[in-house]
């Protein structure tokens, strides 16, 4: 049976069960390649086009639960496009079309029963550039929970999210100040707190450190390592050292195709594909 994601606090789902898409009744494949636990996101022959241009071609991948999966590759290789397809953030690009099967815990993400709004609560997103709302720090974290009908103690939730995002000590005395008063690295951790306040199942991170300095980057990387106890993290990065440092599995994409997907150690020491070898040794990209 496919596992229905539990909320972290063990609290009841805020939304009524009737609004949830029922998980498909199907058995997981008993053996999976190079993957130690259950897969959360599964892609089978996924092709994503912008008008006529295929940004992602025939990608098949299984992303495991409670692990950090990094997607690396040169600019324009389709890694961000693939990431944004997982929580349907590409829906806002009118020319986008997708084929193949992309599932989240057995549910077809692009199926007729799938609700993008509900999906995005379960599959949170952290963007490349920190994008806090022009509101207070507290409201930044609390808003997502309140619009999704959170019925628990909102102050407790905000504190827990900020603690998990390793920013509580820095902001606890200025929760009512504008989020713009924070530094770029703090803003990005606030955005992570904002995403995990929804108690999501999966966190998608689209080059979360590319706008940050090395110290802020190191803090976010530490944080990603802690986050995987609670969440499945999918991280897009064009920083190979970052992928090597924080991820358990690494996928290498090139020209829209998934070239290789394996344990991070293996990708960075003994990749089976020549193109992976060339990329990680800096011969192109």
């Amino acid at each position: 049976m496919v596992i229905v994601p539990e909320t972290i606090s063990g609290r009841q789902e805020a939304q009524s069960p009737s609004r949830m898409t029922p998980p498909a009744l199907r058995l997981r494949k008993p053996s999976q390649p190079a993957v130690t636990s259950d897969s959360v996101i599964r892609a089978e022959g996924v092709t994503i086009r912008y008008a006529d241009f295929a940004a992602v071609r025939d990608v098949t991948i299984e992303i495991p639960d409670r692990q950090v999966t990094a997607i690396i590759g040169p600019s324009g290789c389709g890694k961000s496009t693939f990431l944004r397809a997982i929580n349907r953030m590409n829906d806002f690009i009118p020319s986008m079309s997708i084929s193949g099967l992309l599932t989240y815990r057995g549910q077809d993400i692009y199926g007729p029963k799938s609700d993008a709004v509900d999906l995005r609560r379960r599959i949170g997103m952290v963007f490349q550039k920190p994008n806090p709302f022009p509101k207070t720090i507290f409201k930044n974290v609390a808003w997502g929970a309140s619009i999704n009908g959170y019925r628990g103690d909102i102050h407790e939730l905000v504190e827990r999210a900020l603690r998990r995002a390793a920013i509580w000590d820095e902001v606890k005395d200025k929760l009512n100040q504008s989020a713009f008063a924070l530094s770029g690295g703090q803003q990005q951790r606030l955005c992570i707190a904002r995403a995990i306040a929804l108690e999501p199942d999966v966190l998608l991170m689209d080059e979360p450190c590319s706008a940050l300095d090395p110290i802020a980057t190191a803090r976010i990387e530490d944080l990603i390592d802690q986050l995987k106890t609670h969440y499945t993290v999918v991280l897009v990065t064009h920083n190979m050292q970052q992928a090597a440092r924080v991820s358990d599995l690494t996928a290498f994409m090139y020209m829209g195709e998934l070239i290789e997907f394996d344990a991070t150690d293996k990708i960075f020491t003994t990749p089976s594909e020549q193109r992976t070898q060339d990329y990680i040794t800096g011969r192109f990209g």
Binding site: M89, F92, V117, D118, R120, R121, F127, N131, I147, N148
Partner: peptide
């Protein structure tokens, strides 16, 4: 995008 990413309508 930030709002949509949090499951907002």
């Amino acid at each position: 995008l930030a709002a949509f990413g949090l499951g907002a309508t």
